[in-house]
Design a protein around this nucleic acid. Sequence first.
DNA 1: AATTCGGGGAC
DNA 2: GTCCCAGAATT
Length: 349
Amino acid sequence: MLNDFVKSLIRWYEGSARDLPWRSTTDPYLIWLSEVLLQQTRVDQGLPYYLKFIQAFPTIQHLASASEEEVLKLWQGLGYYSRARNMLQTARYIAYKMNGIFPHNSKTWKQMKGVGDYTAAAISSFAFGEVIPVLDGNVARVTARLLACSEDITKNTTRQLFLQFLEQLIPAAAPAVFNQAMMELGAMVCKPGKPDCASCPVASHCQGRLMGMAASLPVKAKKAKPTLRYFDYFHLVYGNRTWLIRRPSGDIWQGLHEFPMVENTHPEPVPRIPFLQASALQSMALEAEYTHRLTHQLINARFWKIYTTPEQINPLSGIFECAHNRLKEYALHRLMVRYLEQQHIETET
DNA sequence: AATTCGGGGAC
DNA sequence: GTCCCAGAATT
């Protein structure tokens, strides 16, 4: 009957799967790229980035020779920017230290930066036919319902249990299609909160459905509350120039650009501006205020526009200038992009 | 084992 | 508003 499950699953997949560009190739570079882009990212959101990347960097050699600036610029707006830095590092490692030869199995792939259990298994099964199951959020949800398992799926013991189950299920003749099909089922039918059991090709095999508990699975530990942060940004303008800094390491948006800013523990009525002489304060105006929600942080951001002169700006390491009408050509985080859009500051064409 | 790294769509 | 997404690295 397990064999019947696999047959029904794959038959459904062959007949109604989405047509996604990385599914019609076995090029390990393209598959690797798609897997990294799609980590914790919906297909609809990652697809345009995939198309941009394969145009800018058609091969690993193109990527390996790119600067971090260029890669971050293309990654801008997608989030989890460490993926971009890790992928560039791995691209250079494979291109220059491994003569451009990709790892051929999951064990070696897992040694690459930015490649964990899931991505190593995905690349190895999709590009090289390795018989190894993938366990992402979709597969975990499908498996929990299939087995009517109420254990916390974030726990390692539960993951091991699922992998053990999947290893005996995955067909040696078609590991890639099986993995794709399990994920596709989770994305299109066995959705979180609202499983569409009526159109599920393997509903007859599902213990969760049989026991009427499919919709309440999987069980997952709840997250901690986000911490509050208060950012005051200073949009310093003189002539057609403005100022940017790069985000430091060890914090959010690492390596991305933004206006110089101060962080306060509480919202200050008038934020201090360490970048300016006091004489410039009279030209300060609050242009925008946003609440920006991240997974673990809630950021209150205020943008102060200040017209000034070069003489009023104190020297500060890490600050550099750029044309204010070309700001969008830099790698910026979403908060900055929102501000620029509201200010109708567009990229030069 | 617990935290942190984002942005956006579904509800 | 909450939850979750083709997860991984760090502590």
